[in-house]
Design a protein around this nucleic acid. Structure first.
Ligand SMILES: [Mn+2]
Ligand SMILES: [Mn+2]
Ligand SMILES: [Zn+2]
Ligand SMILES: [Zn+2]
Lengths: 157, 157
DNA sequence: GTCTAACTGAATATCATTTGCAATAGGAGG
DNA sequence: CCTCCTATTGCAAATGATATTCAGTTAGAC
């Protein structure tokens, strides 16, 4: 598994910056790696708090999330209202997201052509892109079906 | 000027929803229309507070911004950190943004092909898009030049 | 082991935004 | 105009996400 490799890279990263190797930090990496691709900080905090021998306080979770962002293992991918959804990157290739506003489902996609067109736009503006985020909000197929099923109960259409 | 038209549309909108036509609300629309295409709420609040006869409190600004969003005159276009940048829509066609992380400059662009590709992706996933946001963060040409000029002072490269 | 700087948790602060509430002002009907 | 009722306002207090302070605890260099 490449999680071990990631951890050892993170260890290097920490050493280079004069940080210490602590249990909490590595528990958090573990949790994130096992959580599914997307997560919010509050989920992590609650999950960790529920552990028997809790590994880290809310403060430490926030601090570690920041470190992991700088390290490059996680990334902010969706900003919706006051919520921030992160993603565990871990060598996963770059991609964008469809977000269902009904059920919250997140669908990942990648379109080479979109990426290329973005580069072209940047060139046209002599702009050097560092990163980007494309969020498409809408209704997923499941939720559309649900609405369809309950059609008979609607008050007029 | 179409601002007057917009205001009268807003008036209709308010009436339809049983709201009242108040001075504050229309002062705020004015400020937004005269502010430049993008703004943050705090800017509005400060600007309005600096007026001699202040037109609206912070609460009213927030409440009115919400109304104007529902009305469709403004839109959240950039989410960066804890900042939200709005834009005065006013019949302007849809577009996306390049954001300079050095100086904060915002460049607008529109690529038909990107929009079409997004639609295609949505179809592939039987996803009904409602709206989307493409933010490209990077360094603008001016800021690149500035860096270039000061090259001699850099500590190694 | 010793020592010190980095780390931790808990409480507190901050920042953007929302809400409760009492006072005020639209505007419909007279 | 006047009256009345309800929406609106401003302010203070509440939220919710995240950051910071600080005193006590550890990692890990020597
Ligand atoms: Mn993803
Ligand atoms: Mn714009
Ligand atoms: Zn859905
Ligand atoms: Zn710039």
């Amino acid at each position: 598994m490449q999680l071990e490799e990631l951890k050892s890279k993170f260890e290097q990263f920490l050493r280079q910056r004069g940080h210490k190797i602590t249990r909490g930090r590595f528990e958090i990496i573990d949790k994130i790696a096992n959580y599914g691709p997307h997560f919010e900080i509050e989920e992590l905090v609650r999950w960790i708090a529920n552990q028997d021998r809790s590994a880290a306080s809310r403060s430490t979770v926030y601090r570690t999330v920041r470190l992991l962002q700088e390290f490059g293992a996680i990334r902010e991918v969706i900003k919706l209202g006051n919520r921030t959804i992160y993603e565990f990157v871990a060598g996963k290739p770059h991609h964008e997201h469809l977000i269902c506003v009904e059920c919250g489902k997140i669908i990942e996609f990648y379109k080479q052509e979109i990426e290329e067109l973005q580069d072209r736009v940047c060139e046209e503006h002599r702009f050097s892109p560092i990163n980007h985020r494309l969020e498409i909000f809408g209704v997923c197929s499941d939720c559309k079906e649900k609405k369809h099923e309950s059609r008979g109960m609607e008050v007029r259409t």
